[in-house]
Design a protein around this nucleic acid. Structure first.
Lengths: 214, 214
DNA sequence: GCTGTTTTAACATGATTATGCGGTTGCCGG
DNA sequence: CCGGCAACCGCATAATCATGTTAAAACAGC
């Protein structure tokens, strides 16, 4: 066995903190350096304990785990961070992953798996709750996402919208589609009605956000 | 308990197939409809068994699991597919995920977790080996690349650009920033010069593509 | 202090866009 | 056969945008 993995735990809930601490301490190969209730002194904590792995709650008094994450990765990108949270909303997850989290566990994860997660991240894995993983995957499988629901846009209207999204002027679109400028106007009008917008830009932004008119 | 989850297993290795089959059959809530050594008749297999979840090896004689995957998702996108494999190269993983796989397990996964994975995917999760998850995450963390280089845009110009990207009119931007309409025009002009564009839309599209002016 | 950049601003003109109010063709389903 | 809808077109007006020219105040660096 190599040197034990140095772990730092941040969790404001006392029971949970002590519970996890107990498990980590009891596990061979792990060296729990500290279990702290907040992350406000993250820089000194890191300097003092030189952890390999940081287990971190997201919601804590003072600085949140999400705020601390970039700091950790900035100080030493090699530190593997696993976030613990009760929230699984897309926003948080992606922010966390973009900021460099290596794992993302929901708090209903069995304690044993939390311990396992420490070994996983240390060994180059990325433990995550399977529902979190699904959200991540859906990012890849984009084609499935769109709300085709309220599109209502006709084929031609989509042509026009695609034109807008390429940054074309009405005139260019008219040329490209071989129709008159006024016809383009006509279609645009209908597109705006259907998308409930009233400018090129809004239409484009809306099309990009929801519909995605590929 | 609801109706059992209908499972279809494709695995050419006889020992492995029978081992997993045994486990699946022994698990309450699962209904293993068939365990087949190849995927060459995938269409009729699906039609015959109407599975909820498909467990599929990648390397099989004849058609591979990767080839079968799009067929499965085309026939019924609701079928959840978990791939089993010994390979964890990026290429395969991403192709699989893009094609709609919901889970990706390496074959060294403990049998119990394979069973668990079936429940996971059925319930909207995406079980994956943590090393696979890591590769997926790295895809997100890549975006460190963008060329912040040639911005050249001043702080104020970025403010204006951000306004455009929210779909605001000049007037709105002027209001929001508490400056005059003409000043906005002024800034916009400079932004266009620097970005080498000559319309709102182009500026927005360009800003989104390269710079990303968050 | 001088030079350069940023930020502010005004005035002006032509181009493009947003909207309103018309139309004419087809094609599809009742 | 008819009503509805997609796709086509035109004319008109107001709003917004793109661009040119010019310039003052604030600030940064040498």
């Amino acid at each position: 066995m190599n040197a034990p993995i140095k772990v730092l735990l941040f969790e404001d809930n006392r029971d949970l903190r002590e519970g996890i601490s107990f498990l980590l301490q009891a596990t061979a190969g792990l060296d729990l350096r500290a279990a702290l209730p907040h992350v406000n002194n993250i820089r000194t904590d890191l300097a003092a304990h030189q952890p390999d792995v940081v287990l971190m709650d997201i919601n804590m008094p003072g600085m949140t785990g999400l705020e601390a994450l970039p700091i950790v990765k900035e100080i030493n990108p090699k530190i593997q961070v696993v976030l613990l949270t009760v929230f699984d909303d897309d926003e948080r997850i992606f922010q966390a992953l973009r900021s460099g989290a290596s794992g993302y566990l929901l708090k209903n994860t069995p304690p044993g798996e939390i311990v396992q997660a420490v070994f996983d991240v240390y060994n180059g894995g990325s433990p995550m709750t399977s529902t979190v993983a699904r959200k991540v995957l859906q990012f890849f499988q984009q084609p499935v996402k769109p709300i085709v629901a309220d599109h209502d846009l006709s084929a031609r209207e989509l042509d026009i919208l695609r034109g807008l999204m390429k940054g074309y002027s009405y005139k260019l679109i008219a040329d490209e589609l071989g129709i008159s400028l006024d016809t383009v106007r006509s279609h645009i009008r209908n597109v705006y009605d259907k998308l409930q917008v009233n400018s090129k830009t809004e239409a484009i932004l809306k099309a990009m956000k929801e519909g995605w008119v590929g």
